[in-house]
Computed example of a mutant assay.
Amino acid sequence: MPQSPRSRDTGANIFTALEVQRFAARNAFGSFLALVIRRSSGDVANLMTFMRIRHCALRAIDRVVGAMFRGSLPTYLHGEWIWLSRECWSSIYGRYEPRVTKAIASHLRRGGRFWDVGANVGILSLFASKIVGPSGSVCAFEPSPGVVEQLRRNVRSTAIEVLPIGIGNEDGVRTFAAQGTSTSASFHKAVTAINERYTPDQPITEISVVIRRLDTVLAHCAPPSLLKIDIEGFELEAIKGASCLLSSHCPTMLIEVHPEQLALSGGSEKELFERLRAHRYTWTVIDRNVNGLYTVLALPQIATKNSRQ
C-alpha cells in the first residue's frame, strides 16, 4: 500500500484515501469470491457470474477515482508523487518498474542531471525530476510522434526538457516505424511489429524523424550523471554514438537490453557488453522481464567528479 506523501498537497492526500479504499474493495471482493467458491461446490456458472460482478465493480471504483480529478491524475512512485495524463494513469497505478525506480533513487541526487533516452510517456523523467529538484535537470528523448504528444502533456508543468528525436550512431534523418501511441516502436519495422498485436487498431507507419548521437547532444545538454536507455533494441547504436560521453563524463547507466530486438537491429548482446567493457564499465542485471528483456546497471570503474554530482 502506498505511503503517505511527504507533501501536504490536498489532491495527493485525497488520492491516498481513495487508493486505500480501492485496495480495500479489491480485498473485500476477493474474500467474498472465495466464500462463494466454497459454497458453490464448484458451480462454474455461479463462479463466472461473480467474476463478472467483481470485474464490473472494480472498473466502477477506478472510474470514481478518475472522476474526482480533471486532466492529470496523481500516482505514488517509489517515494515520490507524480501527475500523469488519464490515459497513462490507469495502466501504471504506481507500480512502474520498481527495481528501475529504486536504482534511479539510489544513483541520482539533488542537483543531478538525468537523460531519459526512450522516455516513453515520461514516467521515469517525472520521477527523476522530483529527485534532482530545481537545481538539477532532466532531458527526455522520444522520437515517436504519438508518444511525444502524451509525454508533453505529462511534463507540461515541469522543467523537463523534451527532445523529440531518436538516438543512435548517426546525425541526420532516419525512417522510423511508428505505431500511433505504441511505446514499442523502433527504427526497424520488424522490431515494431513484435508488439503490434497490443495495438492492432493502430497501423505501423514509416515516418522520418531526426536522429542524433549522444555525443552530439552534449553540445546542447549538460552531461548526465545518470543515463537511462530503453530504445527497443537500438541500445547498441546509442552506445556506439556515445564514445566521448562515456569516456569523458562517465555517467552511471541504466540500460534495458532487448535480445530479440537487438538482433533484428543488427546487433548482439555480446557486442553491447564488449563496448561497455571497452569504456571501463562494470554491470549488474537488476531486473528481468518474462519477455526476455532485462535491465542492467552499468557503473564506471573510475568515477569522475562529474559522475558523482
Results as ranks from 00 to 15, higher is better:
100 V>F: 04
153 R>A: 14
94 G>C: 06
115 W>C: 09
233 G>N: 01
200 P>H: 01
108 L>T: 11
77 L>E: 15
214 L>H: 08
71 G>H: 03
37 I>T: 12
273 F>R: 09
159 A>R: 09
195 N>P: 00
138 V>L: 01
194 I>L: 02
64 V>R: 01
213 R>C: 03
62 D>C: 02
294 Y>E: 00
123 I>C: 03
278 A>C: 09
110 R>M: 07
258 H>Y: 15
59 R>K: 05
124 L>H: 07
55 H>C: 01
44 V>F: 11
136 G>Q: 04
120 N>Y: 11
305 K>N: 11
206 E>L: 13
141 F>Q: 08
11 G>K: 00
85 S>I: 11
196 E>I: 10
100 V>Y: 04
104 I>E: 02
152 R>A: 14
106 S>Y: 07
59 R>A: 12
228 K>W: 09
197 R>L: 00
280 R>Q: 15
192 T>I: 10
253 M>K: 06
198 Y>T: 08
237 E>G: 12
307 S>C: 15
72 S>E: 03
55 H>T: 08
198 Y>S: 03
22 R>K: 11
198 Y>N: 04
257 V>T: 07
6 R>N: 06
87 E>L: 01
4 S>M: 06
117 V>W: 11
143 P>C: 08
90 S>W: 09
194 I>V: 07
268 S>F: 12
306 N>L: 04
223 P>K: 07
152 R>I: 06
57 A>N: 09
52 R>P: 01
281 Y>V: 10
241 G>C: 11
264 L>A: 13
265 S>R: 04
96 Y>N: 00
3 Q>K: 14
95 R>N: 15
128 A>I: 06
217 V>M: 08
291 N>M: 10
251 P>C: 02
186 S>V: 12
268 S>E: 01
303 A>S: 14
47 L>W: 14
111 G>C: 11
3 Q>D: 15
10 T>F: 15
176 F>S: 06
198 Y>I: 06
261 Q>R: 04
239 I>K: 15
221 C>H: 08
32 F>P: 02
147 V>I: 13
135 S>H: 06
259 P>E: 09
117 V>I: 14
74 P>I: 11
184 S>Q: 02
193 A>W: 04
187 F>M: 12
27 N>H: 11
213 R>Y: 07
33 L>T: 04
174 R>G: 00
135 S>G: 07
76 Y>P: 04
26 R>V: 09
305 K>P: 02
129 S>I: 10
157 S>M: 03
100 V>P: 02
151 L>M: 01
37 I>S: 07
269 E>A: 14
288 R>P: 01
73 L>W: 05
140 A>C: 02
261 Q>L: 05
193 A>Q: 14
230 D>V: 05
206 E>T: 13
31 S>Q: 13
195 N>T: 03
72 S>I: 07
137 S>E: 06
264 L>W: 09
123 I>M: 05
130 K>V: 10
